[in-house]
């Protein structure tokens, strides 16, 4: 059964109790609750973080979408909003924060730097996009994206959440608890532990 079928209840409600009873699926109610209460990690890297603050403030008022409760601790948050240039020196910290977030967790790459390095891509201390290390759900273009663009990206994330199903999501699967990512090492340059065989191959 695919996700679409799971989300169609297939029960007719008798006319006399239509006002009192609503039938839905577990997926729908679960996703509705999750998508309307996404708690982002209070985590601003650079310029995009300022636009994120503006999106939170009175004019754009992010709380209309149920996303205003930022948490300083990764243990309490669902969403990592990577807002700014990711540097090599910061990368181990970001991966550690990501690993500390409990499932279900999502990542948004806000702005061109987090998406692919942006104007600073050629820099020696800049990572060419956060998706080289952690999985990204939504990319928001812009340098920096306006608060409207950010809100649009967050609505896209809500849409993504509401299409998920308990049956198929990774955090209810058997096997390993979560997709934990090996923490990069600060060597002569940044070392991704997953790439060690490749590095050895090239440098030997």
């Amino acid at each position: 059964m695919d996700v679409k079928d799971i989300n169609t209840p297939g029960y007719e409600i008798p006319e006399e109790i239509e006002g009192q009873v609503a039938i839905t699926t577990l997926d729908k109610i679960y996703n509705w609750g999750r998508s309307a209460s996404v708690w982002p990690l209070m985590f601003a890297l650079a310029c995009c973080g300022i636009e994120y603050i503006c999106a939170q403030a009175s004019r754009f008022d992010l709380s209309r979408f149920g996303m205003e409760v930022t948490r300083p601790s990764p243990r309490q948050s669902d969403l990592m909003l990577v807002s700014g240039t990711v540097t090599k020196k910061m990368m181990p910290t970001i991966v550690r924060l990501y690993n500390q977030m409990p499932e279900p967790k999502y990542v948004i790459a806000m702005g061109s730097c987090a998406s692919g390095g942006g104007p600073f891509k050629e820099g020696y201390n800049v990572v060419s996009g956060i998706d080289r290390y952690i999985p990204v759900d939504v990319y928001i273009p812009g340098c920096p994206p306006t608060p409207q663009a950010l809100i649009n990206g967050l609505i896209k994330l809500q849409e993504k959440i509401s299409k998920q199903s308990i049956k198929t999501v990774r955090w209810y699967q058997k096997g390993e608890d979560q997709a934990s990512i090996p923490v990069p090492i600060l060597g002569p340059d940044l070392i991704d532990p997953r790439k060690i065989p490749l590095i050895k191959n090239h440098e030997a």
Binding site: A46, T85, M90, F120
Partner: peptide, 10 residues
């Protein structure tokens, strides 16, 4: 240095 974006080299 956690946001060292290499302005001067670029």
């Amino acid at each position: 240095g956690y946001l060292h974006r290499n302005h001067e080299k670029i």
